[in-house]
C-alpha cells in the first residue's frame, strides 16, 4: 500500500523580493521518515509551515506570495484536523517570561488551548509522555528555567501527546546531548512502528539523516535531490562541492 501523506506541486513562496521556495514538487508516502537537509535560509522551516497550514503571511512580515498546491491527505493543510499533526517548532528566541510549568506546555498540545487547571487525567497523561522522552523529572519545572535541550524534550512530548499521524519536527535535536539524540531517534522509530505515522524532520545532522531516515530531501530553495539516503548522498557530495559556493553567490546577487 502506498498511500500518500503529503504532496507539494510547484509550490513557491516569495517574501517581498526574496524567493524562499521555488517550484517545490514532491510526494511523501504514508509512514515515511523524511529528513530535510539544506543550508540555513534554504526554506526548510517555510516548507514545514506550509504543511502545517500556517500561511507565511500570518506571522506578519514582508508581503508574501504563495503559489502552487500543498495537500495533506489530499486536503488543503488548513482543513486537516489540527490534532492529526504534531509540530515541534525551531528553537527561537523563546519568551522566557511566560509563566508556565513544563507539564502545562505538554497539556496545551492535548487541548489546543492554554490550560487554566489541569485535570488529574491530563496530569497523568502528560507526566507519562514526558517520561517517555526522558523528561519526567522536568514536569514541575518552570519553562524559563529549562535548558535548551530540556526544552526540546518538553516540546517533543507536547507534539506527541496528541498521537499525531503526521509529525513535523524542526531541528528537534538542537541542544540535545548525544545520548538524548540517540534516544530521540529510537523513540521516533518506535512511535512510527506503533502508529504508522509519517515523520518529516529538519536536521543539520547528515549522519543521523542517513542512518534513520527512509528518504532524504535536500533542499536549497529548490529540491536539489529527494530519495533514499544513499542515493541522495551522492548528489549531496556534488551539491556540497558546488552548491555552497553557488548558493552564496546566488544570495548575494538577489541583493536581499
Amino acid at each position: 500500500m502506498t498511500a500518500v501523506a503529503a504532496t507539494l506541486q510547484q509550490f513557491s513562496v516569495r517574501f517581498g523580493e526574496f524567493q524562499a521556495l521555488e517550484e517545490v514538487s514532491l510526494e511523501v508516502p504514508q509512514g515515511a521518515f523524511v529528513a530535510i537537509v539544506g543550508p540555513n535560509g534554504a526554506g526548510k522551516s517555510t516548507l514545514l509551515k506550509a504543511l502545517l497550514g500556517i500561511s507565511p503571511g500570518a506571522l506578519r512580515d514582508a508581503p508574501t506570495r504563495v503559489s502552487g498546491t500543498v495537500r495533506v491527505w489530499g486536503r488543503p493543510p488548513e482543513q486537516v484536523p489540527a490534532d492529526w499533526v504534531g509540530y515541534v517548532p525551531q528553537v527561537k528566541s523563546f519568551d522566557h517570561s511566560f509563566p508556565a510549568l513544563a507539564l502545562e506546555v505538554v497539556v496545551s498540545g492535548l487541548r489546543r488551548g492554554w490550560p487554566f487547571r489541569l485535570t488529574p487525567q491530563e496530569r497523568a497523561k502528560a507526566q507519562a509522555m514526558l517520561e517517555q522522552v526522558g523528561a519526567g523529572h522536568l514536569a514541575y519545572r518552570r519553562l524559563g528555567r529549562l535548558s535548551g535541550g530540556e526544552l526540546q524534550r518538553v516540546y517533543l512530548a507536547r507534539s506527541l501527546i496528541r498521537q499525531p499521524r503526521l509529525l513535523l519536527l524542526d531541528e528537534p535535536a538542537t541542544g540535545v546531548d548525544v545520548l538524548g539524540e540517540a534516544d530521540l531517534y529510537r523513540y521516533l522509530e518506535a512511535y512510527q512502528r506503533r502508529s504508522g505515522a509519517t515523520v518529516l524532520m529538519i536536521t543539520h545532522d547528515w549522519e543521523a539523516a542517513q542512518h534513520h531516515a527512509s528518504a532524504v530531501l535536500l533542499l536549497n530553495r529548490r529540491v536539489i535531490a529527494y530519495g533514499p539516503p544513499a542515493e541522495v548522498m551522492c548528489h549531496t557530495c556534488l551539491a556540497q562541492a558546488f552548491g555552497h559556493v553557488g548558493h552564496a553567490h546566488g544570495l548575494a546577487m538577489e541583493g536581499r
Binding site: 500570518a58 489540527a82 519568551d95 506546555v105 489546543r112 492554554w114 487554566f116
Partner: peptide, 23 residues
C-alpha cells in the same frame, strides 16, 4: 477566551498551527 488568548500569548505560531484565529 482566556484559553485562546493565553495560548497565543505563549506561542503565536503554535496557536496558528492549532487553527486558532489569532489575528
Amino acid at each position: 477566551l482566556w484559553r485562546a488568548w493565553a495560548y497565543a500569548t505563549f506561542d503565536r505560531e503554535l496557536a496558528l498551527a492549532d487553527r486558532l484565529p489569532v489575528a
